[in-house]
Write a protein that binds this DNA or RNA. Structure first.
Lengths: 244, 244
DNA sequence: GGACTAGGCTGACTCGGGTCAAGGTTCGAT
DNA sequence: ATCGAACCTTGACCCGAGTCAGCCTAGTCC
């Protein structure tokens, strides 16, 4: 994600949602103009985060959602009485941070920037008010959460009873798809997260991630140079994912 | 779940939500009386399902949510191009089936009864209408989904990098907690699902589930007789879950 | 430029849990 | 009472991936 022109969504100070290139992915997608305008009015100037900086901290009370404008973040949970951290997921531009906190009104995990990132704060109480008078926005929010739920379930399937190669293939294909939806290349992108983050997310040791990436490269499926990744054969990766 | 007096929620024909013992868990929880009445009017007579019968089928278009009244069900996905099925989760009385289908308007997985069960159908379009005039219901729905999201994330943590014993301990403790919330015993309940279902859900072979249950029993942590389970030491199970 | 650090790669060893196979139990149907 | 199917248990074997250890590279700070 170093190549900033690859990742759309940078909202320069003073511009609004309609000038943002994330339509189609963001929560603001598909909304009638006046709804968008009022949602827009809610959003402060995007807030900058430095690499490693926490946007939300596990355990703190919930009161705002965030929309990722640019850059990427990871969600990290430290399960009770466990010192090992677990990377629950990654956020890309256009994605909403904090949906899982609405129910219990407290944040179940921390969210940390993987690189320089910009996020828009969306105070939940005011979003709720807006929703009351705005069926479309409300519906949009519900559908967003539902999709989130579904993708968590997909992730569960990916972890359950799959080999290291299948997990990694699934992970890379998923990332590829998400970048593609955001107007970036489906074949070439930066991995903003470390091998360790990927491993934690997939339930693998970081050494295994490294080894499997190497194997994929030797098989001509991908090309890796540090964090820059090129997918050479989507079909090959799909084949691995669907093996057995 | 054979002992029907253990599992509340049976709504005899003619009675309504306010006569149902699932207040406090169900979506109808916490709603003002008139909201509850209008929601109630939406619900048909609970529909009976026999063991093994499908409530929804993977791929079919989505248009209704279901509230589990009594009995239990499993959600089963067959990932694309994979013949192996994966048990995504289990539904107990008071839980809502179908939330993950709202977004894409199609059902990502099948839902099958594990035993005789009753469910109330809740047509989604009409629920939406109701939500428009009813902030509390709307909020309740959102929070319900959010909690669902959170519990999926917890499940992810449970699967990722945990041993078979930890997974099973976590699973049993989770079930125990859910039964407890429903007014059943936290220590003794029926496993409506087979060892194979549990294994699929936890990413383990069914033989492993069997072995680990046996080990737990030998250690005096649980008592298993077929599907009837008694938890003898919640602390012991917690200790296993939090090991390392 | 040099040194320090975080992150990444690779090899050797070990072990948890998957797989295969055989036998036992439970329960419903006839 | 008998049969069969589905489910569960247990043992033997083996492989994938975790752990530990050592080394390399890139980036950052003096």
């Amino acid at each position: 994600m170093t190549a900033s022109e690859q990742v759309p969504g940078t909202r320069t100070p003073g511009t609004h949602c309609d000038a943002c290139s994330l339509h189609g992915v963001c929560l603001t997608h598909d909304l009638p103009e006046e709804t968008q305008a009022s949602l827009d009015a809610l959003l402060d100037q995007p807030r900058p985060l430095k690499r490693g900086q926490a946007l939300v901290t596990q355990g703190e009370p919930f009161d705002t959602l965030y929309l990722v404008r640019s850059g990427s973040l990871k969600q990290v949970a430290r399960p009770l009485g466990h010192e090992a951290e677990h990377v629950v997921g990654f956020y890309l531009p256009g994605e909403a941070v904090g949906l899982e906190a609405i129910g219990e009104r407290t944040c179940p995990a921390s969210v940390v920037a993987l690189e320089t990132a910009f996020v828009c704060a969306l105070p939940y109480a005011r979003l709720r008010e807006l929703c009351q008078h705005n069926t479309t926005l409300n519906e949009s929010l519900l559908r967003h959460m539902s999709r989130e739920l579904r993708s968590e379930q997909r992730q569960l399937c990916l972890l359950s009873g799959r080999t290291a190669e299948q997990r990694l293939a699934g992970f890379l294909l998923g990332l590829s798809e998400r970048f593609h939806q955001r107007g970036c290349s489906r074949y070439r992108f930066q991995l903003a997260m470390s091998r360790g983050d990927i491993g934690s997310h997939l339930g693998l040791a970081l050494e295994t991630v490294s080894r499997v990436l190497g194997r994929f490269q030797r098989q001509g499926l991908v090309q890796v140079a540090n964090r820059e990744l090129t997918l050479l054969s989507l079909e090959g990766l799909h084949a691995i994912l669907e093996e057995r």
